Computed example of a mutant assay.
Amino acid sequence: MQSTPELEAELLLNSDVSIQGWAVATITEAHLLLQMGQHQEAKGMLREEVEKFKTVAHNWSNSLIKEGNSSLSTAYRFSASPFAEYITPERVTRIKDISPSDLSLNQDQVRRKKNEASVEFEMSYAQERYPKSWIQKQIAIAEYLDSLSELLARLESLEAFADLCESRNLKSSKEILPDENAPSELYLLPAD
């Protein structure tokens, strides 16, 4: 939480390992609390940690999306043509979800941001200003931000699971989960 978000390989690697470790530790603690039927403790801990995690994800997003050219200082730049074969629209949406500057945009503003980014890449100077190395760096940024958004989504879904366990007044979260002998399939947890 204390490292300054910046695009420097060693810092990014160390931060990523720390952030993932933090998420795993939080998820593990929450699951243990839920297995022991301590729903309120799990929910309180998750609420606190999810807010902290959200702040970290937003800080990294702000830092890594910021670009010298204001037309490209948006998660929607990843939807432009240079990234079409590398970054799916779903990934752009997930990155947008942790980008504070993009979260509050309405549909017209989103359309304008996408259009501005597309036009920037069509300009005559684009190949010189945005060489293949720059494109590859942007793809790496998108992958990193997407991994942060996925971790945040997992933490948030665990919050919802804790709510479900509490609403059903379960003695243990194991009561609602398939046991070890259940076949490996997709299971849906019924919501009330």
Rank of each mutant, 00 (worst) to 15 (best):
122 E>W: 01
186 L>P: 10
113 K>W: 01
97 D>E: 10
152 L>I: 09
162 A>N: 01
177 L>P: 09
111 R>A: 15
40 Q>C: 04
144 Y>P: 10
131 P>S: 04
104 S>N: 14
157 S>A: 14
32 L>I: 12
93 T>S: 14
64 L>G: 03
130 Y>W: 01
48 E>S: 09
36 M>T: 12
12 L>H: 06
29 E>R: 15
158 L>Q: 11
110 V>G: 01
125 Y>P: 02
103 L>A: 01
22 W>V: 09
178 P>W: 08
116 E>G: 03
169 N>I: 10
164 L>R: 03
165 C>V: 08
74 T>Q: 07
143 E>H: 12
79 S>T: 07
98 I>K: 00
31 H>L: 10
56 V>H: 05
159 E>C: 13
10 E>H: 12
189 L>M: 12
59 N>V: 05
163 D>A: 01
91 R>L: 04
32 L>P: 03
191 A>E: 15
174 K>Y: 14
21 G>L: 02
100 P>A: 01
153 A>S: 03
184 S>H: 15
184 S>L: 15
178 P>S: 08
47 R>K: 14
127 Q>W: 15
7 L>F: 12
146 D>P: 11
64 L>A: 04
182 A>N: 08
133 S>H: 07
57 A>P: 03
109 Q>S: 11
188 L>K: 14
25 A>H: 07
61 S>E: 02
19 I>G: 05
102 D>L: 01
166 E>V: 08
15 S>C: 08
130 Y>I: 05
89 P>H: 05
184 S>D: 15
91 R>W: 12
140 A>W: 02
73 S>R: 02
176 I>N: 05
132 K>Y: 06
47 R>Q: 13
154 R>T: 05
6 E>L: 13
91 R>T: 11
41 E>L: 13
81 S>R: 13
15 S>I: 01
159 E>W: 15
144 Y>R: 06
133 S>L: 04
42 A>K: 06
52 K>G: 03
179 D>G: 12
27 I>E: 08
129 R>L: 15
134 W>L: 00
41 E>N: 12
132 K>W: 09
8 E>T: 02
49 E>W: 10
171 K>G: 15
128 E>R: 15
162 A>D: 05
47 R>W: 09
135 I>W: 03
138 Q>G: 07
